[in-house]
């Protein structure tokens, strides 16, 4: 029962969704300020979700169960992920060993949900979006995994978030070393792509694909995808903090670091043009993979 509560309220669904929607507002506000606009009020994202819940659900002909099931799948698995993350952040010992790998796998689930949902909608634009999405997954997954392994090696072969945090509390944040800094850059860009933010948003390109993977979604299912995105916007930077800046995670520092990462993601988003999907692939399998391998090599020599 207690677990169910932590899954649904804190640090699971309700908590992470609220933080995520609020972060979404920060994103919109900062973007607006960069573009010399005023920007929406702080409750705008909450209103959007509530509004979507009241809208009619339109399903393209031919699609049914898979189309409605996909958003559930994505949302539930990110909620599970943020619960695991939040619990092991709260009390180091409460995470189970091996949770790092589980989280890495659960982080792929939203993309899968998106792809399955899109392909079941029978819309050619959604199919193109799905094909771009899966290619983006392939692109960022390689350097992402390499950097995660660098962190595992740095923490003495531990795949438990609690002990990675413990290790950093004694030996200093991972980002403070050469290899850690390199891996941090790589993971920051991978997160940008996982969030489907510019410059890696080819799968949802509004101008050419009309939101691509999401094109046929409306009402409640769309709201669920939006919530999934919001929770990712909360969980991914926290994951980054845990891996790289885990020396001091008392609430004040945690919030400070979170805002720092959030703002840098938003700045990258607003100052870059969209990449084509083959450029994305080239970027991640080229420079980013090299950086990640370099980081791995440096960790072997203890740098």
């Amino acid at each position: 029962m207690k677990l169910l509560l932590s899954y649904l309220i804190f640090p699971g669904f309700l908590f992470s969704a609220c933080i995520g929607l609020f972060a979404g507002w920060v994103d919109r506000k900062v973007t607006a300020r960069i573009q010399y606009r005023v920007g929406p009020p702080w409750y705008q994202n909450f209103m959007d979700i509530v509004k979507l819940l009241h809208k009619e659900i339109i399903i393209p002909e031919g699609a049914r169960l898979t189309f409605l099931f996909a958003p559930f799948l994505g949302l539930l698995s990110v909620v599970l992920m943020s619960t695991i993350l939040g619990r092991s952040l709260n009390i180091y010992a409460s995470g189970f060993s091996g949770d790092l790998i589980v989280i890495v796998y659960l982080l792929v689930m939203p993309a899968i949900a998106m792809i399955i949902g899109a392909s079941s909608s029978e819309n050619p634009l959604a199919s193109i979006g799905a094909s771009r999405e899966i290619k983006a997954v392939l692109a960022y997954e390689l350097p992402f995994i390499l950097s995660i392994i660098a962190i595992i090696v740095k923490s003495g072969g531990s795949i438990r978030i609690g002990s990675i945090l413990n290790h950093q509390a004694f030996a200093g944040s991972n980002i403070a070393s050469f290899s850690g800094a390199l891996a941090f850059i790589v993971v920051l860009f991978s997160i940008q792509a996982k969030l489907c933010f510019v410059p890696f948003d080819a799968s949802e390109a509004e101008q050419e694909l009309m939101a691509g993977t999401l094109i046929e979604y409306s009402g409640l299912p769309l709201a669920m995808f939006k919530l999934t995105k919001a929770i990712l916007l909360y969980a991914l930077p926290v994951f980054l903090i845990v891996l790289f800046m885990g020396k001091d995670i008392s609430p004040i520092f945690l919030i400070g670091k979170y805002i720092l990462i959030l703002v840098s993601i938003i700045l990258i988003k607003n100052t870059n043009p969209r990449l084509r999907i083959d450029q994305t692939l080239r970027f991640f399998w080229g420079p980013m993979a090299v950086l990640a391998v370099l980081a791995l090599g440096l960790t072997l020599f203890g740098l």
Binding site: G62, T66, V108, I112, I115, I116, S119, S120, E122, P124, S127, A130, S131, I134, K135, V137, L138, E141, L142, I145
Partner: peptide, 20 residues
């Protein structure tokens, strides 16, 4: 395993979902 997933997404799309 990421590549495996990608290739099965293609299979699911091409055979079962996608445009008939």
């Amino acid at each position: 395993s990421g590549l495996t997933l990608a290739s099965f997404m293609k299979l699911i799309h091409a055979a079962f979902l996608g445009q008939p």
